[in-house]
């Protein structure tokens, strides 16, 4: 069985991003970039399905600039079989990304498509659901456990207050929650080897997808700061402040 894993290059999760001075966008010119952590979980799950003998081939795909080769190399170092870069200089919104991924899916014909439940830059949590819609297949979102057979996937989903289990006929789209697994560490020799592996590049313009943004970004700003707080010296003082000053205790 062939699996497709979609990954995104994002600002590393340890970096505190700032707005540009003119508030026009996020300032990411010089910051460290990494694979989106949720997508890394999706890659790991695909690898485990191959190691369990259920999947036979894993293709990783990224949509982005030529620099997105970094995260494809990371996926190759983790162990995926092939990598495809859908190259575009435009920043694609989730809908456009989903359309590009649909084009790659139709070419590759995977039985299962895995993607992170959200990217930690725009926090949209839309692309997987949109891809499932465009492909007219089932969606197992916020997945914390998968059971895959040759015809179906049973997905445990994290929902408000608990879990839900659904069964989807293949092909289907899965969006990975962090609880699905803990990704393996990439060893340096694997990373060196991955640098030599080929990455296929597809020009987004060759896929016939309209990438024109539907949303206009008007401003990026830091949220209003909280008024500075105080340190209290005892529990008694804390209780007194909560009662008399903050009025949150009766």
């Amino acid at each position: 069985m062939k699996l497709l894993v979609a990954i995104k290059r994002v600002v590393d999760y340890n970096i505190k991003v700032r707005a540009k001075a003119d508030g026009s966008d996020v300032d990411i010119a010089t910051v460290k970039m990494s694979i989106n952590p949720f997508d890394e979980v999706a890659v790991e799950e695909a690898l485990r399905l191959r190691e369990a003998g259920i999947a036979t081939e894993i293709v990783a795909v990224a949509v982005g600039t030529a620099q997105s080769q970094d995260v494809l190399r990371h996926a190759l170092a983790m162990g995926v079989d092939r990598a495809i870069l859908v190259e575009t200089d435009a920043v694609t919104e989730p809908l456009a990304t989903a359309k590009l991924l649909k084009a790659i899916t139709q070419r590759e014909q995977p039985q299962l498509i895995l993607i992170g439940k959200q990217a930690i830059d725009d926090d949209a949590a839309e692309t997987g659901q949109m891809l499932a819609a465009l492909l007219n297949v089932g969606q197992g979102t916020f997945a914390s456990k998968l059971e895959l057979t040759s015809s179906h996937v049973t997905v445990t989903r994290e929902i408000s207050g608990g879990q839900e289990k659904v069964s989807l006929p293949l092909p289907a789209v899965i969006t990975a929650d962090l609880r699905l697994n803990e990704p393996r560490y990439v060893k340096l020799p694997n990373l060196m080897q991955a640098k030599k592996k080929p990455i296929e590049t597809v020009k987004s313009s060759d896929l016939g997808v309209d990438l024109v943004p539907r949303l206009k970004l008007l401003q990026v700003a830091e949220p209003p700061a909280r008024a500075p707080g105080i340190k209290v010296s005892s529990v008694a003082e804390l209780v007194q402040k909560l009662r008399d000053e903050a009025k949150v205790l009766s």
Partner: peptide, 23 residues
């Protein structure tokens, strides 16, 4: 924007061919 809305609305937006604004 809870687990129900976040699961459903992106699917609807894509079928309508419109962008979505989350959260």
């Amino acid at each position: 924007a809870d687990s129900f809305g976040k699961n459903l609305l992106p699917r609807v937006a894509a079928l309508l061919d419109v962008a979505m604004v989350s959260e």
